[in-house]
Amino acid sequence: MSATQFLFWFLSILALFSAIMMVVSKSPVHSVLWLIVVFFAISVHYVLLNAQFLAIVNLIVYAGAIMVLFLFVIMLMNLNAETEPLKNKWLKITGVIGGGALMLVLVAALKDADIRNRIAETNKGEIGLIHNLGMALFKEYVIPFEISSVLFLSAMVGTVVIGKKE
């Protein structure tokens, strides 16, 4: 077992464990913190694939910005385990059915995918480096990229409009 393989297994176990802990934690603040651990583990996976730019952007955007806002909301609303509203039994059942259906779709979609014959390039892939990524984004995919940025702009305008109403 090489060092990379060892890291891969360690990180995968860490990511799965933290993801499960995120779902089962009683306190929402703990859930957010476990989710941050998941993002960390996934970022290090990116580093193993030599996609350093993706790794750090994943950390800055998700763990550094979005999760901080989540924490803001949860901390200010004071959602502790004691003040948790009573859960509806039917809500749990629909949750289980919804999750099961999602898993069924995922398994059906991935069943025929050609994953087995593809080997991840560790330590030598170049696509995740900033230069190549920029080239791909602004040459091949420039129109989808610009459209998604317009989408972000409209979301921003929407936020300002909602904020101004009061």
């Binding site: 913190l33 350093q52 730019f53 750090i56 950390l59 800055i60 550094g64 901080v68 480096l129 900033i130």
Partner: peptide, 25 residues
């Protein structure tokens, strides 16, 4: 000498928020 040097610093600094937030909460 990683090729994302400045972004690395940026990423770690943005993690620094959690020290303050977790401690305060």
């Amino acid at each position: 000498d990683v090729n994302i040097g400045i972004l690395y610093i940026f990423g770690v600094v943005s993690m620094g928020v959690y020290g303050v937030m977790i401690g305060g909460w």
